[in-house]
Design a protein around this nucleic acid. Structure first.
Lengths: 245, 245
DNA sequence: CCTCTTATGTAACAGAATGCAACAAAATCG
DNA sequence: CGATTTTGTTGCATTCTGTTACATAAGAGG
């Protein structure tokens, strides 16, 4: 890979400055940011390999940001925080952080951990880096997020409705992770804000899942891709390759 | 979805015991080991997803082992050590560890970091790198962990329920090892986070075993594969071949 | 060999979760 | 607008899984 690009998110200018400077002195590209908006625009621009995310960000909450980012993207995130109690660390891991580093920290150690996270990412996904990811492959199927086109293993195009497409996207972003109906429902409405609170109260998700299964499962009666996790929800149970375009 | 298999490498039997037990109580399969030879044979058998590696292993050196493993394999490694100085941690990262945890540690936190590393691996895995241990054979039967498909010796497909599949996986991972009902129950809940503590209080496991026997034993009344260990629990009493795909 | 005790096997039941067809409401399109 | 497609709702069928009660089997001790 090229030079790693690291997004440093901290609301304290001194800390931001210290971190970015140190990282830059050690062969990385460090980009400063201080709000979720900035973070998003940087990530969306596809120029970030890893996020160093402070937990306490003025009026924003790093944990919340992490949780949201994790749902949509697969960018590695290292949380940084003065909150070092075990339960606080665990909370960080719980929202999907790849590592959790307590302040104050040894910059050298930070660097080592950054490298560890980056190296694992690289090691396990040789070519692929999810930047502006708009094309996926799984089980011989391919999905182009840009056009919403879905091709079967035999290269036949399959038409999905909008809702079905949205569901597929949510699943593709969280392969192997069981999602509750609530989580799915929340993430289905990509654009609009929250709908009714009782979202997914009904069986809408079940039915939607069934419909998607009918289109992408070889044998919908015995789903291998979109599996039920009884008592929990559903899992996208196959590996997903993310292709750049 | 497959149960993560964790190799616990420590030369102190108490510590090994504590760690494996705790990990097993939290939805993973933990395999103990204490020497590089053992580590290699386990890894080569393809049944390991992550290695927890103690740094000080009697006359062997965890750091060296880590370095060598890293050169050949891309298996995730978390180093565990009583050496907690920054330079010692950095040495761990330098030899390729994915994380470095200082003893004594909070088991919950260990678990969180294990999960973080595993999830990172999975998240960034592409089709090329899918885990290579998804097929087993025993007594003429075959089981594909990826699809959950079970084929009888006569190549007839047999449908197992989710719970039955999970049981079979636990057994396959521990052939010839008698498992108590508690151990089985603990390892059954792969996905769900917390489960009731009184798990296996009732006879649920017995019934489940009976159901699985009805499906995979030639003569369920005289089980040859899934045998009862009176006063103890159950054993998977035949050899298991692990096939790569 | 018999009896007593305990562990295991299992059929039957119950409650819950899920699948799904059919319908109805909403959205989209021309 | 009317036609068509999409999406949510509902009710019922099906599947799953733990519990219970009773039958059997395995030991232990005489």
């Amino acid at each position: 890979m090229a030079i790693p690009r690291i997004l440093v998110v901290d609301d304290d200018p001194d800390m931001r400055q210290m971190m970015t400077q140190f990282l830059r002195q050690h062969g990385t590209i460090a980009l400063p940011a201080s709000s979720e908006t900035e973070v998003r625009s940087q990530i969306d621009s596809g120029r970030v390999d890893l996020v160093l995310l402070d937990v306490m960000l003025g009026d924003e909450n790093g944990l919340e940001i992490c949780k949201r980012l994790r749902r949509e993207q697969s960018i590695p995130i290292i949380m940084v925080s003065a909150l070092s109690a075990d339960h606080q660390r665990m909370e960080g891991y719980a929202v999907g952080a790849d590592d959790y580093i307590a302040k104050p920290f040894n910059p050298e150690l930070l660097l080592a951990r950054v490298k560890a996270v980056l190296s694992r990412t690289r090691r396990s996904s040789s070519l692929v880096h999810r930047r502006n990811t708009n094309s996926f492959e799984f089980n011989g199927w391919s999905f182009d997020a840009k056009s919403g086109e879905v091709l079967s293993p035999t290269k036949v195009q399959v038409a999905l409705s909008r809702r079905e497409t949205a569901l597929l996207q949510v699943l593709l972003a969280n392969p192997h992770i069981p999602l509750t109906r609530e989580e799915i429902a929340e993430n289905l409405n990509v654009t609009g804000e929250s709908q009714r609170a009782d979202e997914a109260a009904g069986r809408a998700i079940d039915v939607l899942v069934g419909r998607l299964r009918n289109k992408i499962e070889a044998n919908p009666k015995n789903p291998q891709i979109l599996r039920t996790e009884r008592g929990v929800g559903y899992v996208f149970a196959v590996d997903v390759a993310v292709l750049e375009t």
